[in-house]
Design a protein around this nucleic acid. Structure first.
Lengths: 229, 229
DNA sequence: ATAAATATGTTGAATTTTCAACAAAAGGTG
DNA sequence: CACCTTTTGTTGAAAATTCAACATATTTAT
């Protein structure tokens, strides 16, 4: 009951976020509420650094991030972290694992800041709902497109991390950021350790490389802000 | 007309391959022929080393590999090749780019051996066909699941290539292969250069590492056959 | 405001990779 | 079978990464 109340609060508070969610593209505003009920969305909140979805657990839920930001992380048995990607409000997470119905999610989804989320039981997405909700087909189509876009993002990550040197990885990444925002001046979402874990390099070596690039006049940077010269 | 004849020949010759294609799961045999026509599938053949889909071109087609094998390759501006993955008969390729409707495919699909393929114009998949083919929804669903599985595969690749040393990358990959076939004795699909390009390491260093592992008694191998001890 | 905790930058040594060049083995072809 | 081509293995030198340890900012909490 309490959860139901929170769900209603979230739906109102984050309506603008929800209508931008890839899951609801092409679906009229007035139907989004109905669908979230139909899908049995559960509302949850997570504090900074908390695990939203834990590595190794079965993939039960598709997540919609409503506020805050989260990171997709992979850990190997040596404890080395790889940051696979980042989740911003409106975006889905864990949808691939839910759709592929994997026994064990190979990543963790970690809250970077306090996060509000909706979690949708994937069985409600993969099987038509009892009410035979007419928007289900549109949603499957949306999910399909969303997954296709995520694969493009993976290709971009491979293009960056397949480079052999820290400098090349960093420059590939920064040039990609610049291209994306359409400016040589931009902020990156990662701190140094996170950037290192995203680029799959050593943090201290990354710091050294950034200093070197500064001295060479290739870029200026303060913390998370970069400018390519 | 000639192409239509070849299409019919392919449909008959490769029917067992087609019915295993992720696109046609849950669709009765007798409907697959009809659908391929409905989708306007084009049949094509490629010789070894030929480019089936070229990097930089717009994503127009979803491919179904009927025979042979193909590789997904990425090239950077230095000419360094990264092998993203491999395509075996029955599998789809380029479907993510087609579904995401990208302007420029970021990879090339290269025939490893002589290949027969079907190419389906993605507009026929993304928009309901004129005949309002009743299997279209099932196909979208299948495509969605297929894309989800491919994302899992990307996570596996990242788990392997995010390792920092050639040895760790190699061992991760080999252990993954062993797990997949359920035996410590298995063949890999790559030759040395291809394996190096898949693991994103130097070929000669990879050869040296394999030799070292042999001497240490960790594995035996001849060409593409490996056995973990 | 101060202390504590976290993040970033710096450095040198050890390890590892890459690169280039070549040798040896395997495969294909006339 | 001999020749040519391709693949694989080997090596040493140069370059780059990682690792550990520490210095310096910066942020957070009390």
């Amino acid at each position: 009951m309490l959860n139901f109340q929170q769900k209603v609060i979230f739906m109102k508070k984050y309506f603008d976020v929800l209508r931008k969610c890839p899951l609801f593209i092409g679906i009229a505003d007035e139907h989004i509420f109905k669908m979230l009920n139909c899908l049995g969305a559960k509302s949850e909140s997570f504090d900074k650094k908390y695990t939203i979805i834990g590595e190794g657990n079965p993939a039960k839920f598709i997540g919609i991030l409503l506020s805050g930001s989260a990171q997709i992380e992979q850990m190997d048995y040596y404890g080395n972290r790889t940051i696979v990607g980042r989740v911003e409000p409106s975006q889905l997470f864990s949808e691939a694992f839910a759709c592929a119905q994997v026994d064990a999610v190979p990543v963790s989804v970690i809250a970077n800041e306090p996060c509000d989320v909706f979690l949708i039981d994937c069985s409600h997405i993969l099987h038509t709902c009892q009410n035979n909700c007419s928007f289900h087909q549109q949603m499957i189509f949306n999910l399909m497109k969303n997954l296709a876009v995520k694969i493009i993002v993976f290709h971009q990550k491979i293009e960056i991390t397949s480079k052999r040197t820290t400098r090349e990885k960093l420059m590939s990444y920064l040039m990609f950021c610049a291209k994306e925002v359409g400016s040589n001046s931009f902020d990156i979402p990662y701190d140094r350790q996170e950037l290192a874990d995203f680029l799959e390099v050593d943090r201290s070596g990354l710091s050294a490389e950034i200093s070197k690039l500064r001295k060479e006049g290739v870029l200026t940077s303060t913390k998370k802000h970069f400018e390519l010269l």
